[in-house]
Write a protein that binds this DNA or RNA. Structure first.
Lengths: 336, 336
DNA sequence: TTATATTATGAAAGCGTTTTCAAGGATAAT
DNA sequence: ATTATCCTTGAAAACGCTTTCATAATATAA
């Protein structure tokens, strides 16, 4: 039933339905009117012979690959994984297939990935995060539409799907401030990464707006990995800092932070409050469950896919808002 | 520099290098000898004109797509993600591209995925987990080679990359027993899932071999998700069971378990020891860090990719062993 | 040397579609 | 009725490559 002796071509369908191959092609692609009876006959033939069009012939003749490239950054970050998931979801019921290639957050590898996709003649690409520069992206966009997700690129914003990291960080910090905290440490992400920087700025602004002095000595630079959260706490203690709350630039570092605190017998949130960013799946099950900022990752992924599709179909795309949501759990308490 | 006016065809290379297109094709595919000087000339032309072969024309003419389908199960399980990562890694430096489609652990969707891949005429496929039945797989394998990873299918083992879940669970349980535990609860995974069942059996056998009675009332059936671990602990207490250790069929449930214990003020490992399975990234940063069984996920992914490549190249493949490793951290203590 | 087996090369025949083009039939307008 | 217009349809020309086949050139054997 799956396939009988392979190799059913459009010609056989034409013969079976007693029409020309042009007609078959037309009903299959829907690019032109054909009489109702022939239309039906063709469909019947397709079903009867279990015909599968040959993608290569199609691609060669039409110049369309029905494939969209996706450049991911697979350092197993739950946030990016969620985006990818959202993207794949939308592809599910589309005629396009995603071609996923890994950029690994390395410019060189990302460029190679772009080449691969170019070679495969994808009809469009979705870039998830990464470091590709504006010019590269724009050049590529010249011949193949590009959509970028989880990144905000000046002068290319109409093609970017992103969330306001500054505002989200601002809100997270404000939440801490409103709980009475004044000595709030911040463990930043990799500052080369725009998100990390934006979050740091948001944190800073929230302090300033609340008339709390911004203190360099309460900042530790991490790299988004859990281990760096742990190290950051050690650094804070080495500096002999006191603080009643920590805002981590992501949940992974919050986990490291939490462990460091636990090892020192410091309780969360009784002694120190903790707030993260990302709401990765594990965060809801930390002890205690982590209060964190949740970016609409899957939703952004879905938007990105929807966006590229509407470009391919030459339909207008209506931009959506993607704002982070504060998930209040149990890692923050009012200051003693 | 990226591409100048598109559309460089093999013909132009032939003209530029002053040879026939057949010759160009031959040096590019390496399927036949060509004189050294022409060989060089062609390569030079390719570089000079920045030629990229058209995949569709290639595929159409040769019948090869240079694409391998990967059916994943993207319910964001760190274990399966790690496998995918391993697979992608090996693809990186191969002429093949992976075509990833999501099976979502649903038979019907997996079958549709198989169809998609068939339509795209992949040269081979890698199935990560999932529920596809032996017959389906074998039928497909008739025309397109199949490799299965993270699953052990009777009568198809030569194509399966898996780890011994029974033995791993046995060892994990034995570790608890050797630490003096006798009342060991087990939170199983979804029993429809072979891995879950194997782990349960391994647990059982370890008890039996240690002369500890196997007690149904110490078993709770979970579904691999964290929430079910939490619920399982509640169930245990509702049943009024006493136990000094819990073996969870995966780390995610261990997190739920840990949270449930924490809520009740039960300390790990002081009051109850906990052991998981998978060693997901978050486990090393739980409070306390989780002792767990680590399956060589990435390695298995790499093996799967290597296996399919060797089949495609018609080279022999030497099977490798993939055994789990016990990662001892801080969630298990000797019994009081 | 001459006859024979190899080898490198080009011409040309596909591969299975889409799409342009022209023709024929039907419909509408005069 | 007669002519002009519109659709539907099939023939045939791409699409850009691989591969078979025949040929010319070269190396080997006699």
């Amino acid at each position: 039933m799956t396939n009988q002796r392979e190799k059913i071509t459009i010609q056989q369908i034409a013969d079976y339905a007693d029409v020309s191959i042009s007609t078959v092609s037309r009903v299959l692609s829907g690019n032109a009117k054909v009489a109702a009876d022939k239309h039906e006959a063709v469909l019947a033939a397709v079903k009867a012979l279990n015909y599968r069009p040959n993608m290569f012939a199609r691609g060669l003749a039409s110049g369309q690959s029905m494939t969209v490239g996706v450049i991911t950054q697979h350092i197993s970050s739950p946030f990016y994984d969620a985006i990818t998931k959202g993207i794949l979801e939308v592809f599910e019921d589309s005629p396009y297939s995603p071609l996923i290639v890994d950029g690994q957050w390395k410019l060189e590898i990302e460029k190679r990935a772009l080449h691969t996709l170019q070679n495969r003649q994808v009809d469009g690409i979705i870039v998830v995060g990464g470091n590709l520069e504006l010019e590269t992206l724009k050049a590529f966009d010249q011949h193949t539409p590009v959509v970028v997700v989880a990144r905000e690129i000046e002068d290319f914003k109409e093609r970017c799907i992103y969330t306001d990291n500054f505002q989200a960080a601002y809100n997270a910090t404000q939440f801490l401030i409103r709980a009475g905290h004044k000595e709030i440490a911040h463990i930043s992400g990799l500052l080369e990464h725009p998100d990390a920087n934006l979050r740091l700025q948001g944190y800073k602004q929230a302090l300033i707006d609340a008339n709390i002095p911004y203190r360099e000595d309460l900042i530790v630079h991490g790299n988004f990995l859990p281990q760096s959260g742990l190290l950051a706490v050690e650094a804070l203690f080495t500096r002999n800092q006191t603080f009643s709350a920590i805002f981590c630039a992501n949940d992974q570092m919050a986990m490291g932070t939490q462990l460091a605190l636990y090892r020192r017998g410091i309780r969360v949130p009784a002694d120190v409050s903790l707030i993260g960013f990302d709401d990765q799946p594990a965060s809801a099950f930390m002890t205690p469950p982590l209060t964190t900022m949740r970016p609409p990752a899957e939703e952004m992924g879905r938007s990105a896919a929807a966006h590229i599709f509407s470009i391919l179909k030459k339909m207008p795309y209506e931009a959506q808002d993607h704002t982070c949501e504060l998930i209040v759990r149990e890692s923050v308490s009012r200051v003693r």
